[in-house]
């Protein structure tokens, strides 16, 4: 199973699309590694610096409809090649979500209120996330919360059985090849 623990980046916008995650001009690459430097290169978001702000990040928390647009799996690959195997959002575009699970990566959907609480408590802080895949929980922690003290919050997430199996199998190719 991939790593779902580590530093968290908060991206405070809905509808971040696959062209923003990885622009089409890089789709001529035939290795996943070559995508790494260009993650979120075209995302224009106040306070966000592409390249710099994704360094050392393992989890992204964002708003609604993340990964809309193109079907390019280059989007999850660009995340994966930067060590980001997990995105937490209110919801995802269908193809992007399936691409995440197909590669053994986690796309976790939480209700808008919980996402808002996470933003309130942790955005802009040095935040880490720890995932218990079997229990279906993520624990967010920061030493420097908005009030200056440490904050910790554990949230539960639901997955379909099929999604869990894909994560355990390491992806859809492995899953399908052993069954069909």
């Amino acid at each position: 199973m991939k790593n779902f623990n580590g530093r968290v980046l908060f991206l405070d916008r809905s509808d971040i699309n696959t062209d923003e995650i990885i622009p089409a001009k890089y789709l001529t690459e035939i290795s996943k590694e070559a995508l790494a430097p260009h993650l979120l290169e075209d995302l224009e978001l106040e306070g966000f610096t592409p390249g710099k702000d994704t360094e050392g990040i393992s989890i992204i928390v964002t708003r609604e409809n993340f990964g809309s647009g193109s079907s390019r799996e280059h989007a999850p690959w660009a995340l994966e090649m930067n060590g980001i195997n997990m995105v937490v959002a209110v919801n995802f575009a269908r193809i992007f979500r399936q691409n995440m699970f197909n590669g053994g990566m986690l796309a976790v959907e939480l209700d808008p209120e919980t996402i808002e609480e996470l933003f309130q408590a942790f955005a802009g802080t040095e935040c880490t996330g720890k995932t218990d895949f079997e229990k279906g929980t993520i624990t967010f922690h920061t030493e420097n919360g908005p009030a200056g003290s440490a904050v910790e919050r554990t949230v539960s997430f639901d997955l379909y059985d099929f999604q869990r199996e894909l994560i355990r199998a390491g992806g859809w190719v492995e899953y399908a090849d052993s069954r069909y």
Partner: peptide, 11 residues
């Protein structure tokens, strides 16, 4: 008819 990613395409 539905768009898919490369892994779905591969399978």
């Amino acid at each position: 008819a539905a768009g898919v990613g490369t892994t779905d395409l591969e399978v």
